[in-house]
Design a protein around this nucleic acid. Sequence first.
DNA 1: GTCCAGGCTTTCC
DNA 2: GGAAAGCCTGGA
Length: 289
Amino acid sequence: MEYNIIEEKNRLIIKDMKDFDPKHTFECGQAFRWTLEEDNSYTIVAFGKILNVKKEDEDIIFSNTNIDDFNNIWYNYFDLARDYGAIKKELSKDSILKEATDFGQGMRILNQDPFETIISFIISANSHIPRIKKSIDLIARNYGEKIDDIYYSFPTAEVLSKADPKDIREICRVGFRDVRIVGTSKMIFNKEIDLNKIRDKNREDAMKDLTALPGVGPKVADCILLFAFHKDDAFPVDVWVKRVMEYFYLKEETSPKKIGAYGDKKFGKLAGYAQQYLFYYARELGIGK
DNA sequence: GTCCAGGCTTTCC
DNA sequence: GGAAAGCCTGGA
């Protein structure tokens, strides 16, 4: 899509930007490495860069960056080629998705780094967002590379593959997920799984590859497929999606597997977007709790 | 082959 | 004290 961009020193202003709200995009549960600043802007670390994003009226301001990084990194990271207006319009044919997409109207599905996404969602198992954020930050701080006085990059698979699980557990507060983090990092570093090939596979085949990694079951694999590889048909079913689907659609206690099948059938190629609007809607409003 | 119970660390409300 | 963007193992 075309954007009207004003270049200034060390920042870009994107004029009249539709379908992009930093709060909806960062706080919808897909990403964990953002900080809400006092001026309501968000600072994120991704691909070894620090970026500040602020919404001012109808404009979006990207600070600490330039047009080259925008074109080479952020355009794809924020999925700016995609028409979210069209996606929301299609989903809104369902009255519940109409509510959910109105609520999270500025949410976009990011294209995040695969390795970082894999480790992040291994950590997410049986945990909650504040704690997940803390563990990931500690991993970056202790195993990543220093970018400036505050921010660190996420470590490579090589570094985490050589880490001691006991250290990761005790320093980064990841509990029983310690051996899973190191085990998965080893398999990726040793090329027992080729992440580059995941992109070309369909959801089912990619799921088989990913669930071979320790700590990656069906739910975590779907999150990785959606948030790092943009497989739009992935439909991760966590406790909140389970609740919201039971509350609005199934009307009875249903297994996560059956909810997944229901979501696949009902939302098809847009299942990933539907899931994320529903997750954000349900969690913010406490639906079904 | 599928399904289910129990266990797993630690933090947050 | 219960719940948390679940996974793994063992047994029916």
